[in-house]
Write a protein that binds this DNA or RNA. Structure first.
Lengths: 222, 222, 222, 222
DNA sequence: GTGGTCTAGACCACA
DNA sequence: GTGGTCTAGACCACC
């Protein structure tokens, strides 16, 4: 725990930019030039280049084919739906796997939900979103493959591009926070109780709703 | 039509190195230093750095924790099994999805098998391996999500690290080439016929066998 | 070994256009405008301009004096005869030089003929034309000056403008492929045997025949 | 004759630079950057780029393989000898062709020599060099192929890279101007008289001498 | 509509 | 930091 963590300037830069993008500070479509970033972060262009490359491969940045200029990725509705198809497959697969999961594994899902509950009580919307994500991640963990959870984490990150915290959405979220918590709790209970079919239905319904909201957002923003 | 596409020196370098690694020219554990590669490929260190970073993120290179020197990734048996868990999930999921797939989609799987057949007739072992991979890729395509097929492609590439074409293996492969083709053909027929259950069993058995072989190889090589 | 080499978009564009012209895809007289090419190849006008300039200086494109529009060069019969005068001088000079050439050099000519033989056996007409050209190039190589071989290569390329692979010609070529091979083989043997006079006569006759055919073609096509 | 000749800025720029290089104003090895030239000549970089490209293809500029920076070409002694091999072949071939040349054609050679004589009388060294070149060009003209004379002109231009007017050379040239004129006159007379063999010897001797001088110069300069 | 010219801005690579 | 490379978008001139 007390271990020193070396982190290169490039990695730090990438992390900062990632946060800015996913936090909505840099909205989709914004051009991102090496020079500007280098000056802004006070690093050399070569270093920034590396950082941008990381984000490019993560899909957070996209290169304009002609000008080669980088810009914050704009997710098309079609791509959002593709991601949801993938999520559905991975997460529902996780639910299915719950039937053979150890009690310890299931407990981690339940724990994620409890964490979600805390954020509701403290009216912490940002925390809610993170905890919500963790709830989904833990379900995929049930599949027992690091490679699959990595792929899933990647999908979730990409989605954050479009779920950027607009004020309206925040307000909207606040409205139904409790409602959503209830659904999550029900889901966790079903899972622990071994009621795979009903847990599956619960999750599927949630994903379907979310897909529509996010796809609409992507269509509107694009 | 004849659209031109640019490829930077860094991309070219990465592609060359990737081919060397996956082709077994650079075997797992081989240290890879910026200087050496830079001189070898006739590019500057900064450029090579970028290329190596790409491969690092692809998992083809690993950084030695102590010396920070890059080396060709050595897959542990445990990691091989993790990859196979992921493959099993994705590919068997693809089989399941075949029930709702269009005739056109199923045709692509059948086509991949036909291509495999050709390589057997022309005794093209290298081609066989590639066609074999394509057979599996096409099954995952049935899931209809680019993100999932990308993830799968990534897994397959990593596996090539350990399935490197040793002469012994080639000989071994030659032995049972026809046998393996027969299994593939049966699989394709079952899939097209809508016999999901039996197709699933066919594929599951193949994956299980392969996992044991590859995991053993990884244990031996490491 | 695996040294990387860069190729600019302009160079790539020039190469593509050259191939289209020499391959007969763009026939003599066809107008070539910057805009059209730029859009077709997906490059900017400035870049394409550079590529077109290269081809202009190579003589593959000609600028219409009035409209200043570029068009694929149409070789006049007179120009064809000029080229053949030059070829005759260079190639017959090469034959003369064979008297003082090393065995190794002569072997390269013989090798070119052997390559020609292969293409006949495999009924590869395209390959035949290329190998035929190489036979002539190797003779000029005997002169031992890179500048002369460059000039010769340039002539051969220009001729390809009018020897474009029309189907009729292909058929015609197929007819006398073996016959032409025989003459080539005899030539190589004479050369290696040091029979300069007879080798000279052999080559001179071939060039004279070819000149008539090509000049007629140029007269007809123009 | 009174026709208007449009000349693009790029062409003009190329001509100016060519003159600077061949006139020794820019000596071999001097780096030539787009920016500097653009500012110097008052044209845009795109335009200059085109001009530089022309000179690059003419062999007057060379691109440093690593840095891609252009610099005035430095001729190696080996390349000088290659050029002389080519010149020997072309010019001696021209002499040979004199046997079948028209009186009018031979007259042009004689005229070139007369022009040379004038420059000697007016002590015009620069003019002497130009007239000297014309004497050689006219001989190649006897071959009757524009393509060959073009190739020859190209060789002569490249040589001017190393025959740059150093003061010492100028002095040296002044010394033997008359002597060289005498040899030229003898050559023209032999040619007109149909004494091909002796004309050939005359020219061959001159070329051999020149080759040694120039190759030595190239070795010294490099 | 085609070509010639130019500006402005960015990326790419080397050193 | 320098230099090469490329794009985008504009203006003018000519037929």
């Amino acid at each position: 725990m007390g271990r020193i963590q070396r982190e290169t300037v490039a990695e730090k830069s990438a992390a900062i930019l990632r946060e800015r993008i996913l936090g909505g500070e840099l909205s989709p479509g914004t051009p991102v030039t090496e020079d500007a970033v280098a000056e802004d972060l006070g690093a050399s262009r070569a270093t920034i280049r590396q950082a941008l490359n990381t984000l490019l491969m993560d899909g957070l940045l996209t290169r304009h084919p002609a000008t080669r200029v980088l810009q914050v990725t704009t997710l098309s509705p079609e791509e959002v739906r593709d991601i949801y198809r993938a999520r559905r497959f991975l997460e529902l697969g996780g639910v299915e796997a719950a039937a053979h999961a150890s009690a310890e594994q299931l407990e981690r899902v339940a724990d994620a939900v409890r964490e979600l509950e805390k954020t509701v009580h403290s009216h912490d919307v940002t925390g809610f979103v993170q905890a919500d994500i963790r709830c989904h991640v833990e379900v995929v963990e049930l599949l027992g493959s690091r490679h699959l959870t990595d792929a899933h984490r990647h999908l979730m990150e990409k989605l954050r591009l479009v779920i950027t915290a607009t004020e309206q959405q925040e307000a909207l979220v606040r409205e139904n926070l409790k409602e959503r918590l209830a659904v999550h709790k029900e889901f966790a209970e079903l899972l622990v109780a071994g009621e795979v079919g009903r847990a599956r239905a619960n999750l599927a319904a949630r994903l379907e709703d979310a897909e529509e909201v996010v796809a609409a957002e992507a269509a509107g923003g694009g």
